[in-house]
Design a protein around this nucleic acid. Structure first.
Length: 200
DNA sequence: AGAGGGATGGTCT
DNA sequence: GACCATCCCTCTA
């Protein structure tokens, strides 16, 4: 019933892709024998990162490193990386050689509630399962093993969700000391969603 | 080879 | 609002 979105979806310019990702489903199929067949969340918040023209981007130097090399490959690949004790996930964007990316910051739980509760721990309330980039990957069970995987292939893929009414923009979160980049309005989120990571 | 530090989150005050 | 857990990448030498 959930089917991967077409690869061409990822070919849009990074700001457009960041906006288009709002409202789409992230589907993580679970191994046979799991309590649920898949975990699903609906994206409500993204941020665009634009490589060499963006001081806040990991790929600002425009030189591939062990961490960022996947960003220089084709759009639609998964860029995961570790931040302190958490894994964050991105959609690679831009032509080959142009290291853009879209950070998926927050989503709304859709299916697999019991498993998400287990993944996040008993004490965490539903509204806090997926309202941040590190929380989201933990709830969905996404790890570094998906580095370089394609977002249009099972078992982890984007699937088309319902139309979103209104999308707001603003400055990105958590990128202090990046000069002019701190004010770029490259954050996108669904207006009024209670699963957005934070309002500012 | 080692220091520095980060696109975060949970807990405590 | 402050503290810090804890990994591993990146830069410099």
């Amino acid at each position: 019933m959930y089917e991967p979105i077409d690869q061409t979806f990822f070919q849009a310019p990074v700001l457009e892709l960041s906006r288009n990702l709002i409202g789409q489903y992230i589907v993580h199929e679970q191994p046979p024998g799991s309590s649920v067949p898949y975990l699903v969340a609906r994206i409500v918040e993204t941020e665009a990162y634009q490589g060499p023209i963006d001081r806040a981007a990991h790929s600002f130097s425009n030189q591939p490193t062990k961490r960022t090399e996947v960003m220089f490959k084709e759009a639609g690949l998964v860029y995961t990386y570790q931040m302190h004790t958490h894994i964050l996930m991105n959609v690679v964007s831009g032509a080959v050689g142009v290291p853009h990316g879209v950070l998926i910051r927050a989503a709304e739980p859709i299916e697999g509630f019991e498993q998400m509760q287990m993944n996040r721990g008993e004490k965490i309330q539903m509204k806090d399962w997926t309202n941040g980039p590190g929380k989201l990957t933990k709830a969905l069970g996404i790890t570094m093993k998906y580095y370089g995987h394609h977002w249009s292939e099972k078992p982890l893929f984007i699937s088309e969700g319902p139309e979103v009414k209104e999308i707001e923009t603003g400055p990105r979160v958590g990128i202090g000391n990046t000069g002019e980049a701190v004010d770029y309005p490259w954050r996108f989120f669904e207006k009024g969603s209670k699963y957005v990571s934070k309002y500012r």
